[in-house]
Amino acid sequence: MSETQPVRVVHYINQFFGGIGGEEQAGTPPHAKEGSVGPGRLLEMSSQGKIKVIGTVICGDNYFVENEGALDEVVKLIEQFKPEGVLAGPAFSAGRYGEASASVCKAVQERLNIPVITGLGPDSTALETYRRYIPIVRTGTSAVDMKNSMPVMGTILYKTIKGEALTEEEQEKLYKRGLKKNVIKEKNAAERAIEMLLAKYRGEPFQTEIPMVKRETVPPAPPVQSGPIRLALVTDGGLILKGNPEGMAGGRSKRYCRIEIKDWSKLSPDDVEVNHFGYDTRYVTEDPNRLVPLDAARHAEQEGKIILHPYIYSTAGVATAIEDAARIGKGIAQELLDAGVQAVILTST
């Protein structure tokens, strides 16, 4: 008599897995399709009737990270299906897709209060930011791993929806969430510390129990001694060309832009504007020189103190992953070094 009803799931994927196209279609806005698309079929098949993909929401990678409202649009589309759970990706090690999959899961969990799951590779930039909030399955780095990871994600999502406990093996497939609890160990803390000490001395592997935050430290450059100094202006305050022809994001930045200033004596609201969702931009929109001091720099140039680099480099430094920020910084620094720039004024907001 008893017939198990499949759980009703919505699948979130990007334009590539949605079969729309590659990078050239990355600007595709969010839209929904009935039933399963692409890897969603694998999800249904591998679940042996336990999972029904009632709808698929597809969004282009660029659209998602560059449009503030994208997340809301995606969640609204998902909500319309009234699903019991949401599976996003897997995104493997893809940057924008990983960010989108993980943030969709987090938002769905918070707003719709239903189980979610995504899958990311160990080097995914979204992992550190999201693992404490949502369950994330450990996948390979590319879609080659799809056939392995999709069934695991399906099983874990199904069990979570049904309120069933995960096996130890399934637990192992999830990334640790970076949370903590007290347990009783076999040896006391002093003995474990001494064990670690000996392992360290002997060059054997050991695992600290109190992990430290590892940050890259950059030693300050020595002062520039003789002038005139080749100086560049850089900002993370979201300075963009008027009308945003380059499609810069107002936050969660993945890239920077270069604004040519060689013909300008100062910044004018006729040429530039500000796109940054992390602070009140009214005053610097009125006078962009208060965000990036081109007027003062030109004055110093006239006095012969500096030679100004012909470009301002800009990004929007808010809600940006540390990994992305580091990549952006290194990119700007390399361009400046290649141009022989000796010093930088970086205005941050």
């Binding site: 404490r132 970076g178 949370l179 903590k180 803390a189 002093a190 474990r192 510390a193 001494i194 670690m196 000490l197 392992a199 360290k200 050991f206 600290t208 129990e209 109190i210 992990p211 430290m212 935050v213 590892k214």
Partner: peptide
């Protein structure tokens, strides 16, 4: 190496003690 207590903080593993040093890579 050392041994040290920790607090709940924001509930994450990285907010466990009030100071940070990468030299302390073996703490129980």
């Amino acid at each position: 190496s050392g041994f040290i207590w920790s607090y709940m903080g924001d509930g994450t593993i990285y907010d466990s003690i009030s100071a940070n040093s990468e030299a302390a890579d073996a703490l129980a």
